[in-house]
Design a protein around this nucleic acid. Sequence first.
DNA 1: TGAATTTGGTAACAGTGTTAGTAAAAATAG
DNA 2: CTATTTTTACTAACACTGTTACCAAATTCA
Lengths: 200, 200
Amino acid sequence: MGITERKIRQKEEVRSSILKAAWQLVIEEGWQALSIRKIAEAIEYSVPVIYDHFANKEAILLELTKQGFQILNNELVKAKKRSSEPEKQIEAMAYSYWEFAFDHKAYYQVMYGLGMPSCETVNQISELSTFTELVLQPIKDLIATSKTPNTDAFLKLHTFWSMLHGLISINMMSNDNSKEALNQMVLQDFIAGFISGIKG
Amino acid sequence: MGITERKIRQKEEVRSSILKAAWQLVIEEGWQALSIRKIAEAIEYSVPVIYDHFANKEAILLELTKQGFQILNNELVKAKKRSSEPEKQIEAMAYSYWEFAFDHKAYYQVMYGLGMPSCETVNQISELSTFTELVLQPIKDLIATSKTPNTDAFLKLHTFWSMLHGLISINMMSNDNSKEALNQMVLQDFIAGFISGIKG
DNA sequence: TGAATTTGGTAACAGTGTTAGTAAAAATAG
DNA sequence: CTATTTTTACTAACACTGTTACCAAATTCA
């Protein structure tokens, strides 16, 4: 009988409406203003209903974090596809990462611990390893054809990611948009330096 | 009459006891668990007394942020003094910055927006400009004697600071201490790259 | 000593996350 | 078709949070 299926579908609908409402609130008022009660009001259900779908508030934020990484991963895949040369891939992905951060500021903030989800939790989401894999591959390729083929690719990935994140997060602090051109330069500089650093 | 002076001194004492208690709570339970009521209990005063010394909770966090920058600045000055060569100074300061972050994790987290103080507020604390000045000088010196003396020092400082922060914050997320040696390598790599990047 | 001011406290307001208990609705069984 | 069980969703509460209006006692000043 399709009744139980309809029920599951309906339940799923409530679940996604919670996430949708939560996200709406995050972009409207910032993640700090997100509250269970506001979500409940937005989806026109009582508060405890939310706890039938999520263990707690943190679980909702975590889900939004996953969504963020999914979008980011999609963007990175697109960027990567634009070329088959590892250097061009890395370059495109770096720009893509940068653009994602500023186009989806709210997502980026939730993703990188400015929101609640404790560090341990974030480190266990599967989307993160997809992300890692995605960027690791071209770095490996580049290393393989470089003068120092024994370089630790994971180390390089780590550096790449960290610095990119640093550039972004310091720039998000001082949200002075007049400096955006300046930062594009820093980014350009960094990417070039990173790639030539691997090539040896 | 010294009576008013004693009063001022006593008031100052309460103020600093608030900050001390707040800081104790932050390192014991994390900045997320900090509450006005807990502070009040710790200093054995009622809640509203705290509002005679600080406008709100954020003001307390901001004060802790300032303290953090003061400690950091002191460390950087010490590191800088160990040499008069700009490259050595930059290197020492980078290590010092890194060490500060991991020796005073709680401070670092409060300082970089993982705590409450809104971005705008943090950008207006005077300790930040002291910090900037401190690091900017040796970069300028190094640029002056490099092959490209027209390089924008502020841009380089920005890169330096951002990337260092990135390295630290990504590593703080995955608080896997077994990787500390690995990260030391990344740091070493970064510093060398940065300096040689300026020299041209 | 009497008036003014400062100091500190109680209690409340308006929120928050979370959960226990309950009434109604729906699905299942006899 | 009725009776029982299960699901669904609610009200109300608990234990917190930041913040403030109000009030009483202590202290200072005239």
